[in-house]
Structure formats: C-alpha cells, structure tokens
C-alpha cells in the first residue's frame, strides 16, 4: 500500500522535478567537460594514456561542478512542510540528473576515444575513471546535501561549486605519494588509489543519504551553551 502510494508520488513528481532542475547550469558544466575531452581529437594530439586520464579527470570535474547545483531549490521554504519526505524528493532529482549524467559521461568517453590512438585508449581504464568521476560528483552531492541539511539555504550550489575544485587540488597537493589519488594508468599505486576512490564514492553517497532526512531532534553540541545547529539565512 505504502509502496504503491510512493510509486504514485514518484510518477507524479517526475515531470515537475525534471522541469525544476537547473538544466542550464548542468548543461554548462557538461558542455565544458565535452570541450575539454574533445581537445585531443580537435587538435589531433597523440597523447599518452597518462595525459588522457587527466583529460578525462578534468572533464569529470566539470561535471561535478554542475552536480553541485542539483539540490538547488528556490521553492525550498514554500515546500518546507509537506508530507512527501525530503529524501524521496532529493533521490528523484539525483536519479534524473544521474541518468542524464550517464549519457553525458558516455559521450565524454566516446569523444576521448575518438581523439586517442588505439594503444593509448587500450591503456586507459575507463571503468576506474568512471568511479573517479562518480566520486567527484558524489563529493559535490555530499557537500550540497550537508548544506541543505545544516542550513536553511535555498541554493547551496554556488558555494559548493566554489569549494569543489579546491578539494581535488588539495588532494593532489597534500596526499603523500603512497596514497595519491590521481595516479597515471599502469602505476603500481593504481589499484590502491581506486580502492580509495571507491571508498570516497561510497562515503560521499552515504553522507548525502545521511543528510537527506529532516531532523526530528535538534543536535545539541554542548548542553547548556544553547548552540544547536547553525541555521543561516533562515530568518527568525
């Protein structure tokens, strides 16, 4: 009964969800990603697999910047107290964007393939790079989810998108050699790095899922200090 009811809500909600998503921003990020991925093909550069992997990563980062806006909802307060739970609404958004994003990602890989010689393409582990791309987008999603959960902002996207490029850069700069995330294909650290990537993907999705439900109890940091969860921009 409940499942059928939910299914009916999802069916009814899909169209307005598709309409309300920030497609222009997503398309902007995705377009830049395709442009980056197309550089080797456009200029007929014969790039080795290591550089191609970085091209794919740059494209993935463009997509992640777009993903930062997925939870932007200008009508958040107007729909602040409705019975359809937030996790369902967010999951629907993510599912719609995820489907479109999968098509985009296939296009990115296709464009890279078109610009790579057979040998370089064979040396490029597309599956593992997809995990990296998923983790980067998952990171954006987790940040946006946390911003929605812990503040009253309607549009977490701009702040998340601004912070997002900093994280991979910080990872590239700060992580020690043995635990590097951005390793070239064929490197002995590749397997370890991708275990880490898969962990990041799982962790970010878990954070997003954890931030989904609306709180029923307020988290009180230090009893007596009356801090509570900061709620910026909510108005008192």
């Amino acid at each position: 009964m409940r499942v059928r009811r939910r299914a009916a809500v999802v069916a009814a909600l899909t169209r307005p969800t598709v309409r309300s998503l920030p497609w222009r921003l997503l398309a902007g990020g995705w377009s830049l990603g395709v442009v980056v991925a197309a550089v080797p093909a456009l200029f007929s550069l014969d790039l080795p697999a290591a550089v191609l992997a970085n091209v794919v990563r740059a494209a993935a980062l463009c997509g992640a910047v777009g993903t930062a806006f997925v939870l932007d909802d200008p009508a958040r307060h107007t729909t602040g107290a409705v019975p359809v739970p937030r996790p369902l609404r967010q999951a629907l958004r993510v599912a719609v964007v995820g489907l479109a994003g999968a098509v985009w990602w296939a296009a990115v890989l296709g464009v890279v393939r078109a610009g790579a010689d057979a040998e370089s393409w064979a040396a490029l582990p597309a599956g593992a790079l997809t995990v990296e791309a998923g983790a980067l987008s998952g990171l954006a999603l987790a940040l946006a989810g946390a911003a929605v959960r812990f503040s009253a902002v309607r549009l977490p996207g701009p702040a998340v998108a601004a912070a997002l490029p900093a994280l991979p850069v910080a990872a590239a700069v700060f992580l020690p050699y043995e635990h590097a995330l951005f390793v070239p294909p064929g490197d002995p650290r590749w397997a370890d790095a991708h275990t880490l990537w898969a962990g990041i993907l799982a962790a970010t999705l878990a954070v997003w899922a954890g931030c989904g439900p609306e709180p029923r109890r307020r988290v009180r940091a230090v009893p007596g200090r009356g801090g509570g969860v900061p709620q910026r921009g909510g108005g008192r």
Partner: peptide, 20 residues
C-alpha cells in the same frame, strides 16, 4: 552573471595548466 562560471573556469585553468 552566474556564480557557476568561476568554478568551471577554475577547472578549465587546471586543465590548461596541468593537463594539456
């Protein structure tokens, strides 16, 4: 007039400076 452009530009700079 969109705060979306600068992060993308950052990615583009990273791509231009580090990848290509």
């Amino acid at each position: 007039r969109s705060s979306f452009v600068a992060p993308l530009a950052a990615v583009a700079v990273i791509a231009a400076a580090f990848v290509f």
